[in-house]
């Protein structure tokens, strides 16, 4: 049983809660593979996606997850909403609550916004990414893919490479993976590595080879071009050459290592196309995991356990 109203991140949940989501996620994934997309777990419920940042895959993934569970879905994006009229997040939340929404899935460019919303509304709030803070459903889908592939997460060595500083994905992965008993290595240009991740349990590596050495998972993070105005590195070409991952890096990894990426990939920047399209890649599987794990999240927050 998940005894929390909201899923705001992976910092707070206990290991058992994360495992419960993954267990149900595996069942959901099996049903999706079998073509079973008409569950009635959330029949009569309403899920609103409230996106203050552009997103195609995460929003679509949540929308389909909700629809496969039988819920009504409303999509609000900042471009078309009252947000542009200057309404505060708190007031928007009160309005959505008054309309009897059961779930609000929020993506927001500012850290802590989902927490503020969750404190305001009665609806379940699911964080679909808040600034540089957390992106729990992305990390959970990553875990689902790892768990399905390796049969376990405890003991895995996971190397995360890329723009760690701006990455909510890296942090949610770190929090969850540490609780599940995995080793997390991180490597980034010094300009893109924040302070304190070692204190949170990450092993900060001096080179991509050190990070990849014997690793079970190589995870590339997207270089968000819109966040690179401040001169964090000279050019994409130089980034790819000195910080990117390609097949030669994969040779440092353990036997049977897999390649992951939250997408969308900048091919030839953080990961070479050969890695993205190669046998070790699980990037497409991550997408299916995403729908499945979001079905599990919505189900468990509503108080259900069945699949």
């Amino acid at each position: 049983m998940i005894e929390r109203k909201d899923l705001l991140g992976l910092l707070q949940p206990r290991r058992e809660e994360i495992e419960e989501i993954l267990d149900l996620g595996l069942k959901m994934k099996a049903r999706l593979r079998a073509g079973d997309k008409s569950l009635d777990i959330l029949r009569g419920k309403t899920v609103t996606t409230l996106f203050y940042e552009n997103s195609t895959r995460t929003r679509c993934s949540f929308e389909l997850a909700a629809k496969y569970l039988g819920a009504h879905v409303v999509n609000i994006s900042a471009q078309s909403s009252s947000v542009q009229k200057g309404e505060s997040l708190v007031d928007t939340g009160k309005t959505l609550d008054a309309m009897k929404n059961d779930f609000i899935v929020i993506r927001h460019p500012l850290a802590g916004a989902p927490k503020l919303l969750a404190e305001t509304v009665k609806a379940h709030v699911v964080n679909a990414g808040d600034g540089m803070n957390e992106h729990p459903s992305q990390a959970l889908l990553d875990f689902l893919t790892m768990k399905e592939h390796f049969g376990r997460i405890g003991g895995l060595k996971v190397a995360i490479l890329g723009d760690i500083r701006h990455s909510r994905v890296a942090k949610s992965n770190l929090y969850g993976l540490k609780k599940l008993g995995a080793e997390v290595r991180m490597f980034a240009p010094a300009t893109l590595m924040p302070i304190g991740l070692d204190r949170m349990g990450a092993k900060i590596c001096a080179s991509r080879e050190e990070a990849a050495d014997g690793a079970d998972v190589i995870m590339g993070l997207r270089i968000q071009l819109e966040r690179q105005k401040g001169g964090n590195f000279p050019s994409l070409g130089e980034y790819a050459k000195f910080y990117g991952a390609d097949e030669s890096l994969l040779r440092h990894a353990g036997k049977g290592a897999i390649v992951m990426h939250p997408g969308p990939v900048n091919r030839g920047v953080e990961l070479s196309s050969e890695l993205v399209d190669g046998d070790a890649s699980r990037i497409e599987d991550q997408v299916l995991s995403g729908v499945a794990v979001r079905m599990a999240i919505l189900t468990l927050l509503e108080g259900g356990t069945h699949a």
Binding site: A111, G131, R168, P194, I195, G196
Partner: peptide
């Protein structure tokens, strides 16, 4: 300062607030 709203350190990383 680059728009930082908190001290840059462990807790800015933990919260994702700009330091």
């Amino acid at each position: 300062a680059d728009g930082g709203v908190v001290h840059e350190g462990y807790y800015s990383t933990l919260t994702g607030l700009k330091g």
